[in-house]
Nucleic acid binder design. Structure first.
Lengths: 205, 205
DNA sequence: AGATTTTCATATTAAGTGATCCAGAAGTAA
DNA sequence: TTACTTCTGGATCACTTAATATGAAAATCT
Protein backbone atom coordinates (compact mmCIF):
# COMPACT_ATOMS: atom_id res chain seq x y z
CA UNK A 1 0.00 0.00 0.00
CA UNK A 2 2.35 2.70 1.21
CA UNK A 3 5.25 2.43 -1.19
CA UNK A 4 6.75 5.84 -0.55
CA UNK A 5 6.99 8.20 2.38
CA UNK A 6 8.01 7.59 5.94
CA UNK A 7 7.25 4.01 7.00
CA UNK A 8 4.84 3.32 9.84
CA UNK A 9 6.61 2.67 13.13
CA UNK A 10 3.98 0.43 14.72
CA UNK A 11 2.64 -2.92 13.56
CA UNK A 12 -0.80 -2.32 12.13
CA UNK A 13 -1.90 -5.94 12.55
CA UNK A 14 -0.77 -6.08 16.15
CA UNK A 15 -2.53 -2.81 16.82
CA UNK A 16 -5.71 -4.15 15.24
CA UNK A 17 -5.52 -7.27 17.37
CA UNK A 18 -5.01 -5.24 20.52
CA UNK A 19 -8.00 -3.08 19.63
CA UNK A 20 -10.09 -6.19 19.03
CA UNK A 21 -9.24 -7.52 22.46
CA UNK A 22 -10.21 -4.24 24.09
CA UNK A 23 -13.48 -3.87 22.18
CA UNK A 24 -14.23 -7.52 22.89
CA UNK A 25 -13.77 -7.04 26.62
CA UNK A 26 -15.48 -3.69 27.08
CA UNK A 27 -17.73 -3.16 24.11
CA UNK A 28 -17.77 -0.29 21.65
CA UNK A 29 -18.90 2.75 23.59
CA UNK A 30 -17.07 2.37 26.89
CA UNK A 31 -13.78 1.93 25.04
CA UNK A 32 -12.14 5.32 24.73
CA UNK A 33 -9.64 6.57 22.19
CA UNK A 34 -7.16 6.99 25.02
CA UNK A 35 -7.44 3.33 25.98
CA UNK A 36 -7.23 2.25 22.37
CA UNK A 37 -4.16 4.32 21.55
CA UNK A 38 -2.54 3.07 24.73
CA UNK A 39 -3.11 -0.63 24.11
CA UNK A 40 -2.20 -0.26 20.44
CA UNK A 41 1.32 0.71 21.41
CA UNK A 42 1.03 4.28 22.65
CA UNK A 43 0.46 5.53 19.15
CA UNK A 44 -0.35 9.20 18.65
CA UNK A 45 -3.78 10.49 17.71
CA UNK A 46 -2.47 11.46 14.31
CA UNK A 47 -1.11 7.98 13.68
CA UNK A 48 -4.38 6.48 14.83
CA UNK A 49 -6.58 8.50 12.52
CA UNK A 50 -4.17 8.16 9.60
CA UNK A 51 -4.17 4.39 9.93
CA UNK A 52 -7.76 3.64 10.91
CA UNK A 53 -9.87 6.68 10.07
CA UNK A 54 -12.04 6.86 13.16
CA UNK A 55 -13.15 4.90 16.18
CA UNK A 56 -16.15 3.54 14.30
CA UNK A 57 -14.10 2.63 11.23
CA UNK A 58 -11.65 0.80 13.47
CA UNK A 59 -14.49 -1.10 15.12
CA UNK A 60 -15.87 -2.16 11.76
CA UNK A 61 -12.44 -3.41 10.78
CA UNK A 62 -12.16 -5.20 14.11
CA UNK A 63 -15.47 -6.95 13.50
CA UNK A 64 -14.35 -8.08 10.06
CA UNK A 65 -11.10 -9.34 11.54
CA UNK A 66 -13.01 -11.15 14.27
CA UNK A 67 -15.33 -12.81 11.78
CA UNK A 68 -12.35 -13.90 9.70
CA UNK A 69 -10.61 -15.48 12.67
CA UNK A 70 -12.44 -16.39 15.88
CA UNK A 71 -15.78 -16.10 14.13
CA UNK A 72 -14.84 -18.99 11.85
CA UNK A 73 -16.12 -21.37 14.49
CA UNK A 74 -19.47 -20.79 12.81
CA UNK A 75 -18.30 -21.68 9.33
CA UNK A 76 -19.68 -25.23 9.52
CA UNK A 77 -23.13 -23.66 9.29
CA UNK A 78 -22.41 -22.75 5.68
CA UNK A 79 -20.61 -25.93 4.72
CA UNK A 80 -23.04 -27.88 2.56
CA UNK A 81 -20.71 -30.86 2.58
CA UNK A 82 -21.55 -31.49 6.20
CA UNK A 83 -24.56 -33.37 7.46
CA UNK A 84 -26.86 -30.70 8.93
CA UNK A 85 -26.72 -32.12 12.43
CA UNK A 86 -22.95 -32.20 12.23
CA UNK A 87 -22.83 -28.61 11.06
CA UNK A 88 -24.84 -27.41 14.02
CA UNK A 89 -22.99 -29.57 16.52
CA UNK A 90 -19.61 -28.37 15.29
CA UNK A 91 -20.75 -24.76 15.40
CA UNK A 92 -22.09 -25.05 18.92
CA UNK A 93 -19.12 -26.95 20.31
CA UNK A 94 -16.59 -24.80 18.49
CA UNK A 95 -18.23 -21.62 19.74
CA UNK A 96 -18.50 -22.95 23.26
CA UNK A 97 -14.81 -23.78 23.36
CA UNK A 98 -13.83 -20.50 21.76
CA UNK A 99 -16.05 -18.33 23.94
CA UNK A 100 -14.91 -19.95 27.17
CA UNK A 101 -11.21 -19.81 26.35
CA UNK A 102 -9.38 -17.42 28.66
CA UNK A 103 -6.58 -16.43 26.29
CA UNK A 104 -8.95 -13.71 25.06
CA UNK A 105 -12.11 -12.06 26.39
CA UNK A 106 -15.00 -14.46 26.98
CA UNK A 107 -18.21 -14.54 25.02
CA UNK A 108 -18.85 -13.50 21.45
CA UNK A 109 -17.90 -10.08 20.15
CA UNK A 110 -20.87 -10.06 17.78
CA UNK A 111 -23.27 -10.56 20.68
CA UNK A 112 -21.71 -8.34 23.32
CA UNK A 113 -19.64 -5.90 21.29
CA UNK A 114 -22.26 -3.17 21.17
CA UNK A 115 -25.12 -4.28 23.38
CA UNK A 116 -25.17 -0.99 25.28
CA UNK A 117 -25.46 1.90 22.86
CA UNK A 118 -26.68 5.45 22.87
CA UNK A 119 -28.90 6.50 19.93
CA UNK A 120 -26.01 8.10 18.06
CA UNK A 121 -24.32 4.74 17.66
CA UNK A 122 -27.28 2.80 16.36
CA UNK A 123 -25.36 2.05 13.18
CA UNK A 124 -22.75 0.09 15.12
CA UNK A 125 -25.45 -1.82 16.93
CA UNK A 126 -27.18 -2.57 13.62
CA UNK A 127 -23.93 -3.90 12.16
CA UNK A 128 -23.73 -6.62 14.79
CA UNK A 129 -27.48 -7.24 14.72
CA UNK A 130 -27.24 -7.99 11.01
CA UNK A 131 -24.45 -10.45 11.68
CA UNK A 132 -26.52 -12.20 14.34
CA UNK A 133 -29.39 -12.42 11.88
CA UNK A 134 -27.04 -14.08 9.42
CA UNK A 135 -26.29 -16.71 12.06
CA UNK A 136 -29.97 -17.35 12.68
CA UNK A 137 -30.52 -17.84 8.99
CA UNK A 138 -27.62 -20.28 8.83
CA UNK A 139 -29.08 -22.34 11.66
CA UNK A 140 -32.54 -22.33 10.13
CA UNK A 141 -31.20 -23.40 6.75
CA UNK A 142 -29.41 -26.33 8.39
CA UNK A 143 -32.57 -27.54 10.08
CA UNK A 144 -34.61 -27.11 6.93
CA UNK A 145 -32.02 -29.01 4.97
CA UNK A 146 -32.17 -31.85 7.48
CA UNK A 147 -35.93 -32.03 7.09
CA UNK A 148 -35.66 -31.94 3.32
CA UNK A 149 -33.08 -34.70 3.40
CA UNK A 150 -35.38 -36.82 5.52
CA UNK A 151 -33.07 -36.77 8.50
CA UNK A 152 -35.46 -34.91 10.73
CA UNK A 153 -39.21 -35.15 11.20
CA UNK A 154 -41.29 -32.26 10.01
CA UNK A 155 -43.26 -31.41 13.12
CA UNK A 156 -43.90 -28.65 15.63
CA UNK A 157 -40.88 -29.53 17.73
CA UNK A 158 -38.45 -29.42 14.81
CA UNK A 159 -40.05 -26.22 13.56
CA UNK A 160 -38.93 -24.59 16.79
CA UNK A 161 -35.43 -26.05 16.70
CA UNK A 162 -33.84 -23.09 14.89
CA UNK A 163 -35.09 -20.65 17.51
CA UNK A 164 -33.94 -22.94 20.30
CA UNK A 165 -30.45 -23.27 18.88
CA UNK A 166 -30.19 -19.57 18.13
CA UNK A 167 -31.34 -18.58 21.60
CA UNK A 168 -29.01 -21.09 23.21
CA UNK A 169 -26.18 -20.01 20.96
CA UNK A 170 -26.55 -16.34 21.83
CA UNK A 171 -27.05 -17.20 25.48
CA UNK A 172 -23.63 -18.83 25.63
CA UNK A 173 -22.07 -15.38 25.55
CA UNK A 174 -23.70 -14.44 28.83
CA UNK A 175 -22.78 -17.74 30.43
CA UNK A 176 -19.18 -17.68 29.23
CA UNK A 177 -18.69 -14.12 30.41
CA UNK A 178 -20.14 -15.08 33.77
CA UNK A 179 -17.57 -17.81 34.07
CA UNK A 180 -19.20 -20.99 32.79
CA UNK A 181 -16.51 -23.36 31.62
CA UNK A 182 -16.18 -24.96 28.24
CA UNK A 183 -16.80 -28.35 29.86
CA UNK A 184 -20.16 -27.30 31.25
CA UNK A 185 -21.22 -25.70 27.98
CA UNK A 186 -20.19 -28.82 26.11
CA UNK A 187 -22.24 -31.04 28.38
CA UNK A 188 -25.22 -28.77 27.87
CA UNK A 189 -24.78 -29.02 24.12
CA UNK A 190 -24.68 -32.80 24.31
CA UNK A 191 -27.98 -32.85 26.16
CA UNK A 192 -29.52 -30.23 23.94
CA UNK A 193 -28.73 -32.29 20.87
CA UNK A 194 -30.79 -35.19 22.22
CA UNK A 195 -33.66 -32.91 21.28
CA UNK A 196 -32.53 -33.31 17.68
CA UNK A 197 -32.04 -37.04 17.96
CA UNK A 198 -35.45 -37.53 19.53
CA UNK A 199 -36.94 -36.16 16.33
CA UNK A 200 -34.50 -37.76 13.92
CA UNK A 201 -35.56 -40.21 11.25
CA UNK A 202 -33.61 -43.36 10.58
CA UNK A 203 -31.70 -43.22 7.34
CA UNK A 204 -31.10 -46.56 5.65
CA UNK A 205 -27.35 -47.09 5.41
CA UNK B 1 -39.75 10.99 54.84
CA UNK B 2 -39.66 14.70 54.05
CA UNK B 3 -42.15 16.10 56.50
CA UNK B 4 -40.98 19.68 56.42
CA UNK B 5 -39.42 22.02 53.91
CA UNK B 6 -40.35 22.84 50.35
CA UNK B 7 -42.14 19.89 48.74
CA UNK B 8 -40.67 18.15 45.70
CA UNK B 9 -42.21 19.36 42.47
CA UNK B 10 -41.68 16.19 40.43
CA UNK B 11 -43.05 12.69 41.03
CA UNK B 12 -40.19 10.60 42.33
CA UNK B 13 -41.79 7.30 41.32
CA UNK B 14 -42.53 8.48 37.81
CA UNK B 15 -38.98 9.76 37.52
CA UNK B 16 -37.64 6.40 38.70
CA UNK B 17 -39.78 4.60 36.16
CA UNK B 18 -38.60 6.86 33.38
CA UNK B 19 -34.99 6.28 34.40
CA UNK B 20 -35.59 2.54 34.40
CA UNK B 21 -36.92 2.64 30.87
CA UNK B 22 -33.90 4.60 29.69
CA UNK B 23 -31.37 2.37 31.44
CA UNK B 24 -33.23 -0.66 30.15
CA UNK B 25 -33.04 0.53 26.57
CA UNK B 26 -29.49 1.85 26.50
CA UNK B 27 -27.64 0.30 29.41
CA UNK B 28 -25.81 1.97 32.25
CA UNK B 29 -22.81 3.70 30.70
CA UNK B 30 -24.24 5.15 27.48
CA UNK B 31 -27.05 6.76 29.43
CA UNK B 32 -26.00 10.30 30.31
CA UNK B 33 -27.15 12.51 33.14
CA UNK B 34 -28.53 14.91 30.56
CA UNK B 35 -30.73 12.20 29.07
CA UNK B 36 -31.80 11.05 32.49
CA UNK B 37 -32.72 14.50 33.79
CA UNK B 38 -34.59 15.15 30.56
CA UNK B 39 -36.70 11.99 30.61
CA UNK B 40 -37.29 12.32 34.34
CA UNK B 41 -39.21 15.54 33.73
CA UNK B 42 -36.53 18.11 33.00
CA UNK B 43 -35.43 18.14 36.60
CA UNK B 44 -32.40 20.18 37.58
CA UNK B 45 -29.03 18.67 38.49
CA UNK B 46 -29.53 19.75 42.08
CA UNK B 47 -32.91 18.06 42.27
CA UNK B 48 -31.45 14.94 40.72
CA UNK B 49 -28.58 14.60 43.16
CA UNK B 50 -30.73 15.52 46.13
CA UNK B 51 -33.28 12.86 45.28
CA UNK B 52 -31.09 10.03 43.98
CA UNK B 53 -27.53 10.69 45.13
CA UNK B 54 -25.66 9.79 41.98
CA UNK B 55 -26.00 8.05 38.66
CA UNK B 56 -24.82 4.76 40.14
CA UNK B 57 -27.12 5.05 43.16
CA UNK B 58 -30.02 5.72 40.81
CA UNK B 59 -29.13 2.66 38.75
CA UNK B 60 -29.04 0.46 41.84
CA UNK B 61 -32.45 1.73 42.83
CA UNK B 62 -33.67 1.12 39.28
CA UNK B 63 -32.47 -2.48 39.43
CA UNK B 64 -34.26 -3.03 42.74
CA UNK B 65 -37.40 -1.52 41.27
CA UNK B 66 -37.08 -3.72 38.20
CA UNK B 67 -36.65 -6.86 40.30
CA UNK B 68 -39.69 -5.92 42.36
CA UNK B 69 -41.87 -5.43 39.27
CA UNK B 70 -40.96 -6.87 35.87
CA UNK B 71 -38.40 -9.19 37.45
CA UNK B 72 -41.20 -10.96 39.31
CA UNK B 73 -41.73 -13.16 36.28
CA UNK B 74 -38.98 -15.27 37.84
CA UNK B 75 -40.65 -15.62 41.21
CA UNK B 76 -42.04 -19.10 40.38
CA UNK B 77 -38.46 -20.35 40.66
CA UNK B 78 -38.58 -19.75 44.39
CA UNK B 79 -42.12 -20.96 44.97
CA UNK B 80 -41.81 -24.34 46.67
CA UNK B 81 -45.53 -24.89 46.32
CA UNK B 82 -45.13 -25.36 42.62
CA UNK B 83 -44.13 -28.58 40.92
CA UNK B 84 -40.53 -27.97 39.73
CA UNK B 85 -41.39 -28.40 36.06
CA UNK B 86 -44.21 -25.93 36.47
CA UNK B 87 -41.94 -23.44 38.19
CA UNK B 88 -39.47 -23.50 35.33
CA UNK B 89 -42.14 -23.41 32.63
CA UNK B 90 -43.87 -20.44 34.24
CA UNK B 91 -40.59 -18.61 34.61
CA UNK B 92 -39.59 -19.20 31.00
CA UNK B 93 -42.99 -18.33 29.54
CA UNK B 94 -43.47 -15.35 31.81
CA UNK B 95 -40.05 -14.00 30.94
CA UNK B 96 -40.55 -14.60 27.24
CA UNK B 97 -43.80 -12.69 27.24
CA UNK B 98 -42.39 -9.89 29.37
CA UNK B 99 -39.16 -9.53 27.42
CA UNK B 100 -40.90 -9.43 24.06
CA UNK B 101 -43.57 -6.95 25.10
CA UNK B 102 -43.16 -3.65 23.29
CA UNK B 103 -44.67 -1.39 25.94
CA UNK B 104 -41.16 -1.21 27.41
CA UNK B 105 -37.64 -1.98 26.16
CA UNK B 106 -37.12 -5.58 25.05
CA UNK B 107 -34.96 -8.12 26.80
CA UNK B 108 -33.98 -8.32 30.43
CA UNK B 109 -32.43 -5.40 32.29
CA UNK B 110 -30.38 -7.75 34.44
CA UNK B 111 -28.79 -9.30 31.37
CA UNK B 112 -28.28 -6.25 29.18
CA UNK B 113 -28.25 -3.40 31.67
CA UNK B 114 -24.49 -3.22 32.04
CA UNK B 115 -23.02 -5.63 29.53
CA UNK B 116 -20.63 -3.01 28.14
CA UNK B 117 -18.61 -1.47 30.94
CA UNK B 118 -15.31 0.27 31.39
CA UNK B 119 -13.16 -0.89 34.30
CA UNK B 120 -14.30 1.94 36.55
CA UNK B 121 -17.85 0.59 36.55
CA UNK B 122 -17.04 -3.01 37.38
CA UNK B 123 -19.16 -2.72 40.51
CA UNK B 124 -22.28 -2.08 38.45
CA UNK B 125 -21.49 -5.03 36.25
CA UNK B 126 -20.91 -7.22 39.29
CA UNK B 127 -24.27 -6.20 40.74
CA UNK B 128 -26.12 -7.65 37.74
CA UNK B 129 -23.80 -10.64 37.50
CA UNK B 130 -24.70 -11.57 41.06
CA UNK B 131 -28.38 -11.35 40.20
CA UNK B 132 -27.89 -13.63 37.20
CA UNK B 133 -26.09 -16.10 39.43
CA UNK B 134 -29.09 -16.07 41.73
CA UNK B 135 -31.26 -17.06 38.78
CA UNK B 136 -28.96 -19.94 37.85
CA UNK B 137 -29.11 -21.21 41.40
CA UNK B 138 -32.89 -21.02 41.34
CA UNK B 139 -33.06 -23.07 38.17
CA UNK B 140 -30.63 -25.65 39.47
CA UNK B 141 -32.53 -26.01 42.72
CA UNK B 142 -35.73 -26.65 40.77
CA UNK B 143 -34.14 -29.42 38.74
CA UNK B 144 -32.54 -30.97 41.79
CA UNK B 145 -35.86 -30.85 43.59
CA UNK B 146 -37.52 -32.64 40.68
CA UNK B 147 -34.90 -35.37 40.81
CA UNK B 148 -35.27 -35.67 44.58
CA UNK B 149 -39.06 -35.90 44.21
CA UNK B 150 -38.68 -38.68 41.69
CA UNK B 151 -40.15 -36.62 38.87
CA UNK B 152 -36.99 -36.57 36.81
CA UNK B 153 -34.39 -39.22 36.09
CA UNK B 154 -30.97 -38.74 37.60
CA UNK B 155 -28.76 -39.01 34.52
CA UNK B 156 -26.27 -37.07 32.43
CA UNK B 157 -28.95 -35.34 30.40
CA UNK B 158 -30.82 -34.03 33.43
CA UNK B 159 -27.54 -33.02 35.06
CA UNK B 160 -27.07 -30.61 32.17
CA UNK B 161 -30.63 -29.29 32.25
CA UNK B 162 -29.89 -26.35 34.59
CA UNK B 163 -27.16 -25.06 32.30
CA UNK B 164 -29.39 -25.51 29.26
CA UNK B 165 -32.25 -23.60 30.82
CA UNK B 166 -29.99 -20.86 32.13
CA UNK B 167 -28.26 -20.42 28.79
CA UNK B 168 -31.57 -20.39 26.94
CA UNK B 169 -33.05 -18.04 29.50
CA UNK B 170 -30.25 -15.53 29.18
CA UNK B 171 -30.24 -15.94 25.42
CA UNK B 172 -33.85 -14.77 25.22
CA UNK B 173 -32.66 -11.23 25.92
CA UNK B 174 -30.61 -11.19 22.74
CA UNK B 175 -33.45 -12.70 20.71
CA UNK B 176 -36.12 -10.40 22.11
CA UNK B 177 -34.00 -7.32 21.51
CA UNK B 178 -33.38 -8.50 17.97
CA UNK B 179 -37.10 -8.68 17.41
CA UNK B 180 -38.14 -12.26 18.09
CA UNK B 181 -41.79 -12.31 19.05
CA UNK B 182 -43.31 -13.74 22.18
CA UNK B 183 -45.05 -16.35 20.02
CA UNK B 184 -41.79 -17.66 18.62
CA UNK B 185 -40.14 -17.73 22.02
CA UNK B 186 -43.11 -19.54 23.45
CA UNK B 187 -42.99 -22.20 20.76
CA UNK B 188 -39.28 -22.66 21.42
CA UNK B 189 -40.01 -23.10 25.12
CA UNK B 190 -42.63 -25.71 24.36
CA UNK B 191 -40.14 -27.72 22.34
CA UNK B 192 -37.37 -27.20 24.84
CA UNK B 193 -39.52 -28.61 27.59
CA UNK B 194 -39.91 -31.87 25.71
CA UNK B 195 -36.30 -32.34 26.82
CA UNK B 196 -37.60 -32.40 30.37
CA UNK B 197 -40.51 -34.70 29.55
CA UNK B 198 -38.24 -37.11 27.71
CA UNK B 199 -36.42 -37.63 31.00
CA UNK B 200 -39.45 -37.50 33.28
CA UNK B 201 -40.49 -40.38 35.48
CA UNK B 202 -44.10 -41.41 35.76
CA UNK B 203 -45.61 -40.45 39.06
CA UNK B 204 -48.43 -42.67 40.26
CA UNK B 205 -51.51 -40.49 40.60
C1' DA C 1 -44.97 36.23 62.69
C1' DG C 2 -40.29 34.23 62.18
C1' DA C 3 -37.12 30.37 62.19
C1' DT C 4 -36.17 26.15 59.92
C1' DT C 5 -35.93 22.90 56.30
C1' DT C 6 -35.96 21.36 51.81
C1' DT C 7 -36.20 22.13 46.76
C1' DC C 8 -35.42 24.86 42.89
C1' DA C 9 -32.94 27.28 38.79
C1' DT C 10 -28.77 28.89 37.07
C1' DA C 11 -23.96 29.00 36.53
C1' DT C 12 -19.83 26.51 36.92
C1' DT C 13 -16.45 22.99 37.93
C1' DA C 14 -12.59 19.70 36.42
C1' DA C 15 -11.91 15.94 33.73
C1' DG C 16 -12.66 13.28 29.71
C1' DT C 17 -14.65 12.65 24.83
C1' DG C 18 -13.55 12.00 19.70
C1' DA C 19 -11.16 14.42 16.39
C1' DT C 20 -7.74 18.06 14.01
C1' DC C 21 -3.93 21.11 13.17
C1' DC C 22 0.79 21.94 12.53
C1' DA C 23 5.74 21.55 12.35
C1' DG C 24 9.19 18.44 11.94
C1' DA C 25 11.11 13.77 11.03
C1' DA C 26 12.02 9.91 7.98
C1' DG C 27 11.58 7.60 4.32
C1' DT C 28 11.35 7.10 -1.47
C1' DA C 29 11.79 8.93 -6.28
C1' DA C 30 13.72 12.05 -9.55
C1' DT D 1 20.83 16.97 -3.99
C1' DT D 2 16.04 18.25 -4.36
C1' DA D 3 11.15 17.28 -4.54
C1' DC D 4 7.62 14.57 -2.78
C1' DT D 5 5.12 11.56 0.29
C1' DT D 6 3.91 9.73 4.58
C1' DC D 7 4.31 9.22 9.55
C1' DT D 8 5.06 11.16 14.39
C1' DG D 9 4.67 14.06 18.54
C1' DG D 10 2.43 17.57 20.98
C1' DA D 11 -0.81 21.11 21.37
C1' DT D 12 -5.39 22.00 20.80
C1' DC D 13 -10.19 21.89 19.14
C1' DA D 14 -15.28 22.14 20.55
C1' DC D 15 -18.10 19.31 23.14
C1' DT D 16 -19.83 16.23 26.71
C1' DT D 17 -19.30 13.99 31.09
C1' DA D 18 -20.74 13.55 36.18
C1' DA D 19 -21.00 16.42 39.93
C1' DT D 20 -21.13 21.22 42.90
C1' DA D 21 -21.79 25.93 44.47
C1' DT D 22 -24.80 29.62 45.22
C1' DG D 23 -28.77 32.00 46.43
C1' DA D 24 -33.59 32.51 46.01
C1' DA D 25 -38.28 30.16 46.49
C1' DA D 26 -41.70 27.49 48.97
C1' DA D 27 -43.26 24.74 52.19
C1' DT D 28 -43.71 23.31 57.69
C1' DC D 29 -42.92 24.09 62.66
C1' DT D 30 -42.75 26.93 66.84
Amino acid sequence: MARTGRPREFDRDKALNAAMTLFWAQGYEPTSLTQLKSCMGNISPTSFYAAFGSKEALFREVVQHYLATYGQVMSPLWDENLIPRDAIERTLRGSARMQATRTHPCGCLVVSGASNCSPENEAVQALLAAERQRTRTGIRVCVERAIARGELRDCATTAALPDIFATFFHGMTCEARDGMTSTHLDAAITSLLTLWDANALLTTP
